[in-house]
Structures are given as C-alpha cells and as structure tokens.
Design a protein around this nucleic acid. Structure first.
Lengths: 340, 340
DNA sequence: GTCCGTGATCGAAGCGCTTCGACCGCTCGA
DNA sequence: TCGAGCGGTCGAAGCGCTTCGATCACGGAC
C-alpha cells in the first residue's frame, strides 16, 4: 500500500521521475533508475489500480464472458478460462469474469464504466446474442469460436475443417478407403459452432479423396454410453477400417473399450484418430493419435489480438484460423486388407 | 461513456447532487432525484470504474482465487465459480479471476494495488499455501472450504460431518444396522479437505448408534469404473443394506447400474443416500436421496461475510458451517430383514 | 566565447468521482 | 418575533497516478 510519493521521497526524486522510471516511457539516468527500483522494491510498491485506470486510461483488465450454459462441457471450458487467464497475465492483464445473464448485461456495463480494456468472448453459440453487442460497444472484442454471423468481428479458432481433413489425409495415405466418424450428440450440432465444421471438413475431404465416410452422432446418456458402443459396432461392422473420434473423453474411452470387446486391435485391425480433443489422448489405452484443440493456442492468439487492438494497432475483422497439427501416438496403421 | 458532469448539466444540478442522488447517501428532493435519474438513464450514465475506486475507496471487485489443480473436479468447481459470481453481483460486485501460480502471487498483487476489496478462496487444500498469505495481507479473505490450520480465518462450508450423520440417522431410523460408504478415490483424502470429514461424520454417528459401517474408497480409473462396481459388490455381499455415496456423478451412476446388475432393487433391497453431491441426484434412475453440497449456499454466505468485512462490520474469525438438509427422492426404505 | 541541442528531471494539470463542510431558505418552538 | 435546526444543494478538496510542457546543466559546433 505504499504510494508513489513515498517511493519518490525514498529515492530522492520527484513523483514524475518515478513514474517514468517504472514505465520506461522516458529515458532516466541508470543510477537514478536503480535507486528508484530499489526503493520501489523495498516499499513493496504497486501502483494503485484505480488511480492508474483513471490517469492512464488503461485498466489492465480484460473481461471474459462465459455463459456457463447447462450443456457446457465443464472440463473443456475450464481449460479455456485458465488458458485465457494465463495468456493475459503475460501482458500484465487480469481477467474479470462475466457469467450467465451477465454475459450480455455485463458486457455493456463493463464497456460503459470503463472497467475493462477489452472483452474476450468464450463458449460461442452459432447464433450468439453477444455478437450484436460486440458490434455496438466501443471496446475491443475477440471471439474464441466462430458464430454464424461473424461479419465485422475478430474471431479466433482452430481450423476445425482443416483438422478433420488432416485426419482424413493421414488415414487415406495409409490406405484406408472407408472411415467412420463418431461425433458429439446431435444437440451439439445446433448449440455449438464447431461440431458441424468437423463434420464438414471430414466429409468434404473424404469426398475429394474418394474415401467412404459414415457419420454417427450417438445420443448422450448415462455412464454406460450404450449409444457410443452401438456406434462403434455399427461402423466397424459396416466395414470402416478407421474411426475418427470427435466427442468427449468418456466416449473416447468407451469407444476403445468397445473395440477391445469386439476383439479388434488398434491399430492392426482398426485405426483411430481423435479430432478436436482438449484432453490428453496419449493417456488412453492404447494412446490415440490426435489433431487436438489446444486451448492455450486459441487463447494466446486471442489475447495477442486483443492487446493489439487496445494498443491501437489495427486488427483485421476476420476469422483467424489456427492451423491444426497432427500428433501421432501409434493408433494408426494401414488397414488389414492392404497388408494382407 | 457519459460523465457525471453531463448528467449534472442535463438535470440542472451540481455534480455533487448527482452523486448523492445516485448513491442515496444524502437526502435529495424527490423531484430533483427524478430529474437526475432520468438524465442518467437517457445518457446511459455509468460511473467510471477507475474514478470510483480512487475517490470512493471501493473497487466493487472481489478476487476469486481458484488454483485449477489438475485433479480439480471441473463441473463442481465451475458450479462454485458461477455461484460466487452470481452471489457477488447481488451486491454489485464483480469477480476478478486469480488462477494457478497466480493464486498466491495474485493475491499479493491484488492486495497491494487495491484492485479488489476482498478475496474469496476456492478449492481449499488441507495445507493450503493461501492460508499464510491470507493472514498477511490487509484485505478481507473468506475461505470456501476449511484448511487444516484455520486459526484466525473466516471459513464457510457445508457441515460435512453433520451431513454424513444426517444420512446415517435417516438410515438408522428406518432400521438399517449395516451401512456401507463408497467414497472418493484415496488420493482425495489427502488433497481435499472434505472427504475425511464425511468419513468421520459417518463413522462417528454410526458408532454412536451402534450401526455397522464399512468404508470403501475405490481408485479412480477409466469409464468402466471397475473399482466402483467391485465396491458395490463387496459392500452388498458383506451384508450392507444401505449405501452412502460420496463420490462423483459417474460413480453414482455406475453404482446404481451395478446394483441393478446384481438384481438388487432400490430401495426395496438396498437403500441409497448421496452425501455432498453438487449434481442433481434426482435425475438418476432411480432418483437418489441426497444430503447435497449446495454451491450457492456456501458462496452466498461467503460473499455476505466478505461484504460485512468490507463494510467494516466485524465478522468472527471462525468456521461458519452450513447446516445440511435431507432431500428425499424415494431411494430409502426399511431394510428387507425388517419388513420380512 | 556563445549558442543550441540533448538528456535528465521536475511541477502541475488533469483523469472522474466521492465526500466534507458550508450555505440558504424555511419551519417550528419558545 | 427571533433563532435554532433541518432538508436540500453546492463548491471544492482531494483520491494516486500519468503525462505534457518547462527547466536545467552540460557539451559540442561554429
């Protein structure tokens, strides 16, 4: 709770010199700077947040709007919140949490009270109500996810189409001619923005390559995940030699379990690739190849763009897609027919 | 982005009158107040956050420290974060997120820069490092959870001992003389503060009432939850006529599934009670009686205490335990032997 | 030797709000 | 009738910081 004038007195300089020394905005003699820094350290000086906001026109705060919908997949979203927070701290920014109904009312409030320098929008729905708001408020907004109508917005996201296509490429390269997708529950294809993109990417690239492609979207249910098991059986018995998984971690585990129950070995009998997972697919038995969704990648880019906007740099209003990356863990191989 | 002087001009009064009218801290003539409120509404006036912090010595912000440990159960913690945020908004407070390593460094930073009026501590470990920090900083701190060493701290939590005891009471009242507890994985009994309290409460009350009591702590594992199934079998075959569940939602579902697989009906053959669950146990098949852990109850009390401390009221440094509540959903009945 | 440019530092003016003390006119009790 | 008291309002002093000139000493160029 030391104040700047105490530091100034301790260092034998004026208040403004302290400010310039600490911000580096004007040249200060090395010896003077040293004294000031030492005094600041000894007094445990931290500039008062309110005063800084008022005088500096910078709050050093980003608002994070996160609706926490009932169907929000908690672990994944926690990972995004965490990644955002860590990315922001690298620029000395803090995160103010705006939840629920507050996601919209809060955005407005934060904008007009000048509580934050920018807004990061998480858990984006295809028809997100925050889109309209983002266009209206005079605050940099970055969407992590892509709403249907994203004109004039700055969005960041994994290139899900390319991610799915990458998985298809890999499998096709190995000689697979028939692959199956186990997706999220059907409801997710309405509420979230990315499941349809994975499906599109997969089917599109499969068509380009002349690869057969079946899609099953198992309903969500209890711990038995019966629909997932049924999906695995359906696809494998239908002749698929490779499975692409785009679903939650439990479904991954259940799918592997079902393959084992069917006596199909991975990767000898069936190849498996995960697309868009935020969890660690190398921890499964067996470890699974993955084209992951990396929260820190999206969040770091989002924060970087937000910072540029705050600093007055101009950032193209566009969807900034992050290139996918294939992580091999040994769950893919040529199909049995090819080696036979 | 309207400023107070614009409101003052529009309403034909001085700046201070606007401030008093809006804060209610001095009597203002009804007609004047009306004009001011109207002007504020029309200009969409929101006091500037920085100016307010500086002049008012109130930030209207609570910091929330949430370490997001790897073993943190995401859905439960998201529920707490959300509940805290909602509780805080009732007092017009916002939540600033402090995560990870930042949980400690951030507490210090927030305290000495005056960014928040108080700190809410979530996901408390028995030997939490934030305890020492809380004693050192000059900011109201409220722990949601009880660390081992809580002297001088303000803590809020469900009375887990009483919750477990309540479950035992209910079962004993119905005539059960042998009950089994299926708890969290053993590791949780070291890392978290509440599992041991449930166990203590259960065993203690069971001993008082002369009820047999067996405890199994199944290891965490994959989606099959084999250890949970084994635990159910072990307890039921060991003669338990009632199960107390203190574990995650998947384990609940698996336990019910295993009972069904064993041909034991709930509640006719086996009674089941859940203790300390944050999820909805009435959604299971069959619905399960519950002595729940209600995030909003803990968080609302925590925020209320924090507000009192901010307002200078004195709050006893103590563990504020919340009385448990029994929610019947039809999963308990007298044991078969009693009715036979 | 004078002048000017430059690096280093300082003083003071805000930033937009809250709050203290003062003021003014009115009512009511003595 | 007079003054105390009070409801209602205003002006101004900060809150702690950033930042814009201004200042000053010093060296090099002419």
């Amino acid at each position: 709770m030391a104040k700047i004038h105490e530091v100034a007195r301790a260092a034998g300089v004026s208040i403004s010199t302290v400010s310039y020394a600490l911000s580096g905005k004007r040249p200060i003699a090395p010896e003077t700077r040293r004294r000031i820094e030492e005094a600041a350290r000894e007094l445990d000086y931290q500039p008062n947040a309110g005063a800084r906001m008022l005088a500096g026109r910078r709050t050093q705060i980003f608002a994070l709007t996160e609706p926490f919908r009932a169907d929000t997949h908690a672990p994944a979203h926690m990972a995004f919140v965490l990644a955002t927070s860590i990315a922001a701290r690298k620029y000395e920014y803090d995160i103010l949490l705006l939840t629920e109904e507050e996601a919209s009312a809060g955005m407005r409030r934060v904008a007009s009270s000048g509580l934050a320098d920018g807004v990061l929008v998480l858990d984006v729905a295809p028809d997100d109500e925050r889109v309209a708001l983002a266009r209206r408020i005079a605050l940099p907004c970055v969407f992590i996810g892509v709403p249907d109508d994203h004109e004039g917005l700055v969005c960041v996201d994994l290139d899900f189409e390319a991610a799915a296509a990458l998985a298809v490429d890999r499998l096709a390269d190995l000689g697979h001619r028939s692959i199956g997708l186990i997706g999220h529950p059907p409801a997710s294809y309405v509420r979230s923005n990315f499941p349809p993109r994975v499906r599109r990417g997969l089917e599109g690239r499969a068509a380009e390559l002349g690869v057969d492609c079946a899609v099953v979207l198992p309903e969500a249910d209890g711990p038995r995940r019966t629909p997932v098991r049924a999906a695995v059986r359906e696809l494998v018995e239908g002749g698929a030699t490779a499975l692409v998984l785009h679903c939650d971690d439990t479904s991954h585990a259940v799918a592997l379990d079902e393959l084992a129950a069917l006596g199909r070995r991975v990767p000898d009998d069936v190849s498996v690739v995960s697309v868009g997972a935020t969890f660690d697919t190398s921890a499964f038995h067996p470890p699974i190849d993955s084209v992951p969704l990396v929260p820190s990648a999206s969040c770091e880019l989002a924060v970087e763009l937000a910072m540029r906007m705050v600093d007055g740099g101009d950032v193209p209003a566009a969807v900034h897609l992050i290139a996918p990356e294939y992580r091999a863990h040994g769950s893919t191989a040529p199909p049995p027919s090819a080696s036979a």
